[in-house]
């Protein structure tokens, strides 16, 4: 009675790995992709098809939509549609670069702290706490006051404000994983720390990180917009959805579209990122064994 033992006819539908098919079948995945594609198209193709200049006044300031200017004009009489089409590129570039660095640093610091079991953990986390206790805008303003304005400084500032949260989440998730037997097995066979992080820890904390990306990306956009709002980020006449909201707030009663249109674009961008993160986590499938 000892032939090769048959395996269980276990459900294969939701497993430990990522599947594109599952991703694309979920409503969040489809809608998220479609909305993101639209925003990307506006940002990337927009500058090529914009009907007017982004800096020269073309009509009466703050006039409502008319046949010539579908979204009306802004507080200086520039075409809102043209500025909208131009203004996505820098938003996307800044927020993507900033988000990438936030996660690079946050994941590195968080995983190192979570796995270290030595003095490294408290030291790293107290450093993180220092950044966490600063009010975000104050940290940014200090930085700008010290180093001047500019896109690079803006990105550094955003990263310093937002990486501590990621580091904390990653550390907590790593601590949870670090007590499991498969980490012990990796330690016992002498894996390098980097390889343990990449092979054993990272895949298991990915859901926690992805769930965070949506919120964090939105925070990046809002932070960048509020710095622009204060007039400390990019300089006018550059077009930027955040900057557009800021500069046109005074004429919102005359031409609501000068504020609403860039706001809608920013909202669509954050919503699509959130939807995609959600769809990704759902399509990962469960890892706990069936009961």
């Amino acid at each position: 009675m000892s032939a090769v033992v048959e395996t269980s006819a276990a459900p294969v539908a939701r497993t430990g790995g990522f599947r594109w098919a599952r991703f694309l079948r979920s409503p969040q995945g489809i809608v998220g992709l479609a909305v993101l594609a639209f925003v990307l198209a506006v940002a990337l193709i927009g500058p090529l098809v914009a009907p007017h200049s982004l800096s020269a006044p073309v009509g009466v300031p703050a006039s409502p939509p008319s046949p010539g200017f579908p979204l009306g004009t802004d507080y200086l009489g520039r075409d809102v549609l043209s500025r909208l089409l131009h203004g996505g590129t820098s938003v996307l570039v800044i927020s993507c670069i900033a988000t990438a660095f936030i996660y690079l640093i946050g994941i590195g610091v968080g995983m190192t702290a979570g796995l270290s079991r030595s003095i490294v953990d408290p030291v790293l986390m107290r450093i993180v706490d220092v950044f966490l206790v600063f009010p975000p805008l104050m940290l940014l303003l200090l930085l700008i006051a010290g180093a001047g304005t500019g896109v690079g400084i803006l990105i550094v500032g955003i990263v310093l404000v937002l990486f501590p949260g990621v580091a904390r989440i990653v550390r907590t998730a790593t601590l949870e994983v670090s007590t499991t037997s498969y980490i012990e097995a990796a330690v016992a066979r002498g894996e390098r720390t980097l390889s343990t992080m990449r092979r054993e820890v990272l895949p298991n904390i990915t859901p926690a990180i992805i769930a965070d990306v949506g919120v964090r990306f939105s925070a990046v956009i809002i932070l960048a917009a509020s710095v622009n709002f204060l007039g400390l980020g990019e300089k006018p006449p550059a077009a930027n959805w955040g900057l557009m909201i800021a500069e046109n707030l005074q004429i919102v009663s005359s031409n609501i579209w000068s504020v609403l249109a860039p706001a809608i674009m920013l909202a669509l961008l954050t919503i699509s990122i959130n939807l995609l993160g959600d769809a990704y986590v759902r399509s990962l499938g469960r890892t706990e064994p069936p009961r």
């Binding site: 269980s8 939701r14 430990g16 064994p289």
Partner: peptide
Amino acid sequence: RYPRELSGGER
């Protein structure tokens, strides 16, 4: 297969 797809004895 992934561990979840196995029974306890198989794992």
